[in-house]
Design a protein around this nucleic acid. Structure first.
Lengths: 196, 196
DNA sequence: TGTACCGTACCGATCGGTCGGTACGCAATG
DNA sequence: CATTGCGTACCGACCGATCGGTACGGTACA
């Protein structure tokens, strides 16, 4: 990937995050990047490809990370903690991209939209499967697993609106806090007492 | 409010929710409503006023409801339950409006933007104060109250993406589920056992 | 000589918004 | 009863600006 294209993507992420995909014009992007129309289109092809790249990259990255974590982590509670930490850290590190993703990925069309939807589905399913596995082992409440997982995903996904990468609070601590809350909420008290 | 304006607002909410505020054009709105340009602007003034009305109404309603609940409900856990139920029910009943709100309220300008931001601040503070009050009474974990509240708000706010008003699951049940998870997560175990 | 990079000029389409004008219903006045 | 005046609702043409995108010529470097 050319360094120019990197620069353009960065500027586009900043612009789209501020004004929205449809709200940001190519004229603004020209100015931000310091290239004129012809040079810009020489690098990017078209506007939607920018949105695609921005919406896709981090999500694809997270699907990869999450898959690996699930493979390596048999214990479901520990698995949740690792998923949570990596997710929140990534959101904090790429807040602009996630802002664009959540707000505007559905402005994509055709195959590009399909691909991003597929990635979203896969990522969500990873969390779902971990929970289901925990239910099977008698660890988690078996009631409404789908809604429960959507809940904890909501805690993390919503954070792109307020989290700061260099904030006072380490993202790992926040992730742990949310995991503690969630796990204490869904863990069954059974045989032994896994309560901390 | 004239019935025509109501119709226009409904159509605009539908359109903005699907295509985004900047992505939806007035030509589409003409067609959806069945009025031509002149008639449309006779009723609405300008495009941004539509966004303002859509972004503001339900939020303002929720601030009012929440204020009343806090006044009437001294017990913090019960207060959370009521706040949660009314919020989730409203989100499910006005999913389109909330979709527009979350995605595009920051496309507002000037006083309109200020007003909506003020409403958001007030609503969030209501939840914060309930939590703080619970901490003072020794009910909740005193650590990171702000982050904890942002977590539960995330659970609910994220739901506009998947909840269905006439879904299989009653919104009250989902709200209770989330409240149970959250409260069990932040409740301190002390003296008596307020656990249900 | 080719190719990657860039600027300039320009395209048709669409953007949100305004304009003058018309049809109609209602209420007051003679 | 007829006439006048007025507000509401609506149409369709039109505005300047901006939209995303393209054609093409020049330049620098291989």
């Amino acid at each position: 990937m050319s360094p120019q294209r990197e620069r353009i993507l960065k500027a586009a992420a900043h612009l789209f995050a501020r004004d929205g995909y449809h709200g940001a014009g190519m004229a603004q992007l020209e100015q931000e990047v310091g290239l004129k129309r012809g040079a810009l289109y020489h690098h990017i092809g078209n506007k939607e490809s920018l949105l695609y790249e921005i919406s896709r990259t981090q999500l694809e990255h997270m699907v990869g990370i999450a898959s690996r974590i699930v493979e390596e982590t048999p214990d479901e509670t520990e698995c949740f903690r690792r998923l949570a930490r990596t997710l929140l850290r990534n959101i904090a590190d790429h807040r602009l991209e996630w802002t664009v993703h959540y707000r505007d990925f559905n402005a994509l069309t055709g195959e590009r939209l399909e691909h991003v939807l597929e990635l979203r589905r896969r990522y969500s399913e990873i969390w779902q499967r971990v929970y289901a596995s925990g239910v099977e082992r008698g660890l988690f409440q078996p009631a409404e697993p789908r809604v429960a997982v959507l809940g904890i995903l909501g805690m993390f996904n919503y954070s792109y609106l307020w989290i700061e990468a260099d904030g006072r609070l380490d993202t790992d601590r926040i992730a742990d806090l949310y995991c503690d809350i969630f796990l204490r909420g869904v863990l069954l008290p059974p045989h032994p007492a896994p309560e901390e």
